[in-house]
């Protein structure tokens, strides 16, 4: 699954500026997260029209990159995240970033790891379900 990542200065008005470009291009944001590190930040979006979003943001002079992540569906019960983390840990895969939510009684984790292919394989072997980009957009 691909996210749009945008590099921005960490100062007031930046989120508004970036999301206005997406709004004007009629791009719908299905999920968003912002990671700040001192003077700068990276905004990551899951959007319905990836190509349009990238093109429009670049045209407006923003630094944009695609970021491949994975979405995993887990049981909405205690210990679900722990099971995923434990599985990755056992295989020495570092979790660079993680966020989760429950929508329509489905618990979804979005995971950022360096070893994506290996992570997919080991989680599937544990019986976990990977959620595709199309599926995420339909949630």
């Amino acid at each position: 699954m691909n996210l749009v990542a945008v590099f921005a200065e960490n100062k007031p008005g930046q989120t508004a500026r970036i999301t206005k470009i997406l709004a004007d291009a009629e791009v719908n944001i299905c999920w968003v997260t912002i990671a700040n590190s001192g003077s700068f930040g990276v905004m990551k979006f899951l959007v319905d029209k990836l190509d349009v979003a990238v093109r429009q943001l670049k045209e407006k002079g923003l630094m944009v990159s695609l970021l491949e992540v994975m979405a995993v569906e887990v049981a909405d019960t205690p210990g679900a995240l722990q099971a995923v983390a434990d599985c990755l840990g056992r295989h020495h895969i570092n979790l660079a970033n993680c966020s989760g939510f429950v929508a329509h009684n489905r618990a979804i984790l979005i995971l950022e790891v360096h070893e994506l292919a290996q992570a997919r394989q080991v989680l599937q072997a544990e019986g976990l379900k990977l959620v595709s980009q199309e599926e995420m957009l339909k949630l």
């Binding site: 590190s37 630094m63 660079a96």
Partner: peptide, 14 residues
């Protein structure tokens, strides 16, 4: 930051 240097990963920039 050089345009090609951004890969979406906040850690790399840090």
């Amino acid at each position: 930051l050089a345009p090609a240097a951004f890969d979406g990963n906040v850690e790399h920039v840090a």
